[in-house]
Simulated assay, not measured.
Amino acid sequence: MDAPMPKQISNPTDRPAYATDAALAAHFGVNKATIWGWVKRNGFPAPVKLSPQMTRWRWADVAAWEAAQTAAA
């Protein structure tokens, strides 16, 4: 079962351009597996492969998704 969407926790101006799954998990107050589950089932933004061993999310994409979730609620 997926966790409910919590409120935004951190200040967007303090973020780098890209986020790890751990950073997203901390931001939303969930575990990393939940982030990957949201990608598969909830329309969460797809990660970007920056190199063969580096997968990240654009904070701008996450913020847009988060705003859409808030607007839909």
Results as ranks from 00 to 15, higher is better:
1 M>C: 04
2 D>G: 00
3 A>Y: 03
3 A>V: 13
6 P>F: 04
7 K>E: 13
7 K>P: 04
7 K>S: 13
7 K>I: 09
8 Q>S: 14
9 I>Y: 02
9 I>M: 07
10 S>E: 04
10 S>N: 07
11 N>H: 08
12 P>E: 09
12 P>I: 05
13 T>G: 11
13 T>E: 15
14 D>K: 05
16 P>W: 06
17 A>R: 14
17 A>I: 08
18 Y>W: 11
19 A>T: 03
20 T>D: 09
21 D>K: 12
21 D>L: 01
21 D>Y: 00
22 A>S: 13
22 A>P: 03
22 A>Y: 06
23 A>F: 01
24 L>S: 12
24 L>N: 13
24 L>M: 10
25 A>Y: 02
26 A>T: 11
26 A>S: 11
27 H>E: 15
28 F>H: 04
28 F>A: 04
29 G>L: 01
30 V>C: 10
33 A>C: 06
33 A>L: 06
33 A>S: 12
33 A>Q: 10
33 A>W: 02
33 A>P: 03
34 T>M: 10
35 I>K: 09
35 I>L: 03
36 W>M: 07
36 W>I: 00
37 G>W: 05
37 G>K: 14
39 V>N: 12
39 V>E: 10
39 V>R: 14
39 V>Y: 08
40 K>V: 00
40 K>W: 01
41 R>D: 13
41 R>A: 11
41 R>N: 15
41 R>F: 07
42 N>C: 13
43 G>A: 11
43 G>K: 12
44 F>I: 08
44 F>Q: 12
45 P>L: 02
46 A>I: 00
47 P>G: 10
49 K>L: 08
50 L>C: 07
51 S>E: 08
51 S>Q: 05
52 P>R: 12
53 Q>W: 09
54 M>R: 15
54 M>H: 13
54 M>V: 13
55 T>H: 13
55 T>F: 04
55 T>R: 15
56 R>H: 06
56 R>P: 07
59 W>E: 10
60 A>Y: 01
60 A>R: 14
61 D>Q: 08
62 V>E: 00
62 V>P: 04
64 A>E: 15
64 A>F: 05
64 A>P: 08
65 W>S: 11
66 E>N: 14
66 E>F: 07
67 A>P: 02
67 A>M: 08
67 A>W: 04
68 A>M: 09
69 Q>I: 00
69 Q>N: 11
69 Q>F: 03
69 Q>H: 10
70 T>R: 15
70 T>N: 07
70 T>K: 15
71 A>I: 06
71 A>C: 05
72 A>Q: 14
72 A>D: 10
73 A>V: 05
73 A>R: 15
